[in-house]
């Protein structure tokens, strides 16, 4: 406590503490241990005019695709370790494999592979904002098309 009575020491100690904290936080941001990946599998079709209430919040993202109806088929979360991979089952004998690559400037780089009957359909690397998403769509399914919302949050 006596150390803090001297203004010079107070200045030094608090500034050091703040800078150290910033450094630690910064370091923590740079190296998340896990990335929580959420895959929402949506069926888009033109048979009906329904918008699944469970997709509330995604209207603005889905409307530009100009389908008449959107239905949430499944939503799945997995904690994927940094530099690790996890696979998500997608309807129609498909699988989506996600591998977080790096975290920088609050953006997560994801390597994504969609396979169908164990054959690769598309490989892509996308950098998304932390807690953001992108859409991968087009595979046909059940009279409509699958729209996959792939989102990631650094843990």
């Amino acid at each position: 406590m006596r150390l803090l009575m001297n203004p010079r020491n107070r200045l030094r100690l608090f500034s050091l503490a703040l800078i150290l904290t910033a450094g630690l936080v910064g370091a923590a941001e740079k190296n998340p241990q896990f990335v929580q990946v959420t895959i929402r599998t949506i069926l888009a079709e033109n048979k009906t005019d329904d918008f699944d209430p469970k997709l509330k919040g995604m209207e603005r993202q889905l409307k530009p695709l100009k389908y008449r109806s959107y239905r949430l088929l499944k939503a799945e979360d997995q904690n994927v370790p940094s530099q690790g991979t996890r696979s998500f089952e997608i309807p129609g004998g498909r699988s989506l494999t996600v591998a977080p690559q790096e975290f920088q400037d609050n953006r997560i780089a994801l390597k994504v592979r969609l396979t169908e009957r164990e054959k690769p359909v598309i490989d892509t690397t996308v950098k998304i904002p932390n807690k953001g998403n992108f859409i991968l769509g087009g595979p046909p399914h059940d009279g409509g098309v699958l729209v996959l919302s792939i989102s990631a949050t650094a843990q």
Partner: peptide, 24 residues
């Protein structure tokens, strides 16, 4: 999108401004 390989298939990349969404 940093890289994309559609294994010979046609693929389109869309950026929707209003919702700030990237669509592959």
């Amino acid at each position: 999108v940093e890289s994309i390989d559609a294994y010979g298939r046609n693929v389109a990349l869309l950026r929707e401004n209003e919702s700030k969404t990237t669509v592959i």
